[in-house]
């Protein structure tokens, strides 16, 4: 009985916690106060929470780029890196101020639904197909991505999927649809892990996977995997930045979010992005309008 009671206690605590969170829903509606004013005249730096995807963060781009913005506008940007799904969810729930992600279709849907505002295209990078150097599926001779994916599926070589709803995973699913082969079977390994872990798994299993170029290059030395297919237009990956809608969450730092969006789209920001070359080549190609 005592045991049962203690379990009940834990459950009640969970429920209390749950309802406690729920009350914030009542605060919706009017956008009276938009949080801190982070203008340069204020001595205390403003705080801005940026949610982004793991791949963006791991590339080192933000560590390089954000200090310029922080210096200019007296801001401290706290970067939270999550999967695309979680990043958008956090923004939607008002737990962040601004989001930098790469799932354009989903982003536009979220803007349409009123969760985010002021979205702009920032830059793009590209995905590559990597696999064992011996290339048992003969992907290297493919004319386009459609053929490359079809060859992997036909050869029975293993393909490791991120399987985590991330931007990369969504891109991969798009490509399977495009190539009109079913991504089902023993050869299709649905791993629910990050990009780095997926690359290690493909390396260990002598399989193929789809990766963003930056993550692959950052790990290339420790991997035996090689790029077996690249350059197809459908492998381009658009990044966008958008602010959490202040009408839903009056406490978000909308002013700061707007400043960061302007910075990313400005000539200065765009030039800085194209000059980011940690492995010798440009990783992200700026394309803000």
């Amino acid at each position: 009985m005592k045991r049962f009671l203690s379990i009940l206690m834990v459950f009640l605590m969970l429920v209390t916690f749950a309802t406690g969170c729920g009350t914030t829903d009542g605060d919706n509606g009017d956008a009276g106060d938009n949080g801190d004013n982070g203008d340069a005249v204020v001595e205390e730096p403003g705080r801005l929470i940026l949610v982004t995807t793991t791949s963006t963060y791991d590339s080192g781009l933000l560590d390089y780029l954000l200090p310029f913005f922080e210096e200019e506008h007296n801001y401290e940007v706290d970067v939270v890196s999550l999967g695309t799904g979680a990043a958008l969810e956090q923004g939607q729930n008002g737990d962040a101020d601004v989001a930098l992600v790469h799932a354009k279709a989903t982003e536009l849907e979220m803007v349409e639904a009123g969760h985010f505002v002021d979205r702009i295209d920032v830059m793009y990078n590209d995905f590559v197909v990597v696999g064992p150097a011996e290339d048992p599926a003969g992907v290297k001779e493919s004319a386009d991505i459609k053929e490359a994916f079809a060859k992997i599926a036909e050869s029975g070589s293993e393909f490791i999927s991120r399987g985590d709803d991330s931007g990369t995973h969504k891109k991969e699913l798009e490509l399977w649809t495009l190539s009109e082969v079913a991504n089902e079977g023993d050869w299709y390994v649905n791993a629910g892990v990050g990009m780095g872990d997926t690359l290690v798994m493909a390396d260990e299993k002598l399989g193929y996977t789809l990766t963003d170029r930056a993550t692959y290059l950052s790990m290339a030395e420790t991997l035996e995997l090689e790029i077996v297919f690249e350059g197809d237009e459908s492998l381009f990956n658009q990044y966008g930045i958008m602010a959490v809608n202040p009408e839903n969450w009056p406490d978000v730092n909308y002013d700061g979010a707007k400043l960061l969006i302007e910075f990313m789209g400005s000539e200065e920001g765009q030039n800085l992005i194209s000059e980011f070359k940690p492995y010798g080549d440009t990783l992200f190609f700026p394309n803000a309008e």
Binding site: L82, G83, G85, A86, L88, Q90, D164, G192
Partner: peptide, 8 residues
């Protein structure tokens, strides 16, 4: 962990 990362 996976579902949390997905935002579920």
């Amino acid at each position: 962990v996976l579902e949390t990362r997905k935002g579920n």
